[in-house]
Computed example of a mutant assay.
Amino acid sequence: MTARAFLVRGLLAGLLAGFATFLVAYQVGEPQVEAAIALESSGEHSHDESADTGSASAADPGAEAAAGHSHDEADAVVSRGTQRTWGLLTGSLAVGTALGGLVALAAATAMGRLGRLGATGSTAVVALAGFVGVALVPFWKYPATPPAVGSADTIGQRSDYYFVFLLVSVLAVVGAVVLGARLLPRLGAWTAVLVAAGAYLVLVTVVGLLMPTVNEVGDFPADTLWYFRRASLLTLATMWAAIGILLTGFLRPLEQRTTERTRRRELAASL
């Protein structure tokens, strides 16, 4: 089984996973984004009305509406309808395909280095570790926030925090997998997995507690924030689960054929 075989199947699995992610994001995530945008718009509208009372609106009753209309047209470089349909689909397919290829290459690298696990077992471990290290744990420390949450002045700083913690989490999960593989011959499968997982959790917990906490929610409705973050996590889980399941399924027939050829060669050599 070559890396090319893994990569081709990984790209296909990622493409299909991207489409599944689009469906979940459109049905579950987009309504929460729309709700957040509506709250943000209503807040800005109220602020504008209170600031402009007795000025332009008093002199010309149509000035405020015209200004708001021209402002919306200037800001809408890409319409919201395009963002939530074709834009979301294109982004989901692109990210899914790229991520599927990366998972496939990582699984090809891990095959033969994780004890007796073959192609499908290695792929399942890589997909699970990737979800935990790339999606779940960074989300725990710096969860996704809707458009109306957070100050525009701190968006760069918040992004830096997230990517630093993401890098720490990815390096930690790679180290945990390597540690587990080295401990496997001496401690057995269960003990090696528990020690490696425990080491990873301790490291990311300590780093997470040391890194700055971001709390810019303000008076944003808690229920809307919860639904948005739940939808975001569900979308991430869909992407990773679909890649792991599909890639494992695509590799299983190839692994079975490879195993059968190996058995035939061994049988022929023993005659």
Score class of each variant (00 low, 15 high):
Thr2Gly: 14
Arg4Gln: 12
Arg4Asp: 11
Leu7Thr: 03
Gly10Tyr: 01
Gly14Asp: 02
Leu15Thr: 08
Leu16Ile: 10
Ala17Phe: 03
Gly18Lys: 01
Phe19Leu: 15
Ala20Phe: 07
Val24Asp: 06
Ala25Asp: 00
Gln27Leu: 15
Ala51Arg: 13
Asp52Thr: 12
Gly54His: 07
Gly54Asp: 08
Ala59Trp: 11
Ala59Glu: 13
Pro61Trp: 11
Gly62Lys: 13
Gly62Gln: 14
Gly68Val: 10
Asp72Val: 15
Ala74Ser: 13
Ala74Val: 12
Ala76Lys: 14
Val77Ser: 09
Arg84Phe: 08
Thr85Ala: 02
Gly87Pro: 08
Leu89Asp: 00
Thr90Glu: 04
Ser92Gln: 04
Ala94His: 06
Gly96Leu: 13
Gly96Arg: 12
Leu99Gln: 14
Gly100Lys: 08
Leu102Gln: 07
Ala106Asp: 05
Ala107Cys: 10
Thr109Lys: 09
Ala110Asn: 08
Met111Gly: 02
Leu117Phe: 14
Ala119Cys: 01
Gly121Leu: 10
Ala124Tyr: 03
Ala127Cys: 01
Phe139Asp: 10
Pro143Ala: 02
Pro143Gly: 03
Ala148Met: 00
Gly150His: 04
Gly150Val: 05
Ala152Met: 06
Thr154Met: 08
Gly156Tyr: 14
Ser159Asn: 14
Ser159Met: 12
Val164Phe: 06
Val168Ser: 01
Gly175Leu: 10
Ala176Leu: 14
Leu179Met: 13
Arg186Met: 13
Leu187Gly: 09
Ala189Trp: 14
Trp190Lys: 09
Thr191Arg: 15
Val202Trp: 10
Leu203Met: 00
Val204Asp: 06
Gly208Phe: 12
Met211Val: 13
Val214Glu: 07
Asn215Ser: 15
Gly218Gln: 11
Pro221Ile: 07
Asp223Trp: 00
Thr224Asn: 09
Trp226Ala: 13
Arg230Gly: 12
Arg230Thr: 15
Ala231Ser: 10
Ala231Trp: 02
Ile245Tyr: 07
Thr248Ala: 12
Gly249Arg: 05
Glu255Val: 05
Glu260Lys: 03
Thr262Leu: 13
Arg265Met: 03
Glu266Met: 01
Ala269Arg: 12
Ser270Thr: 08
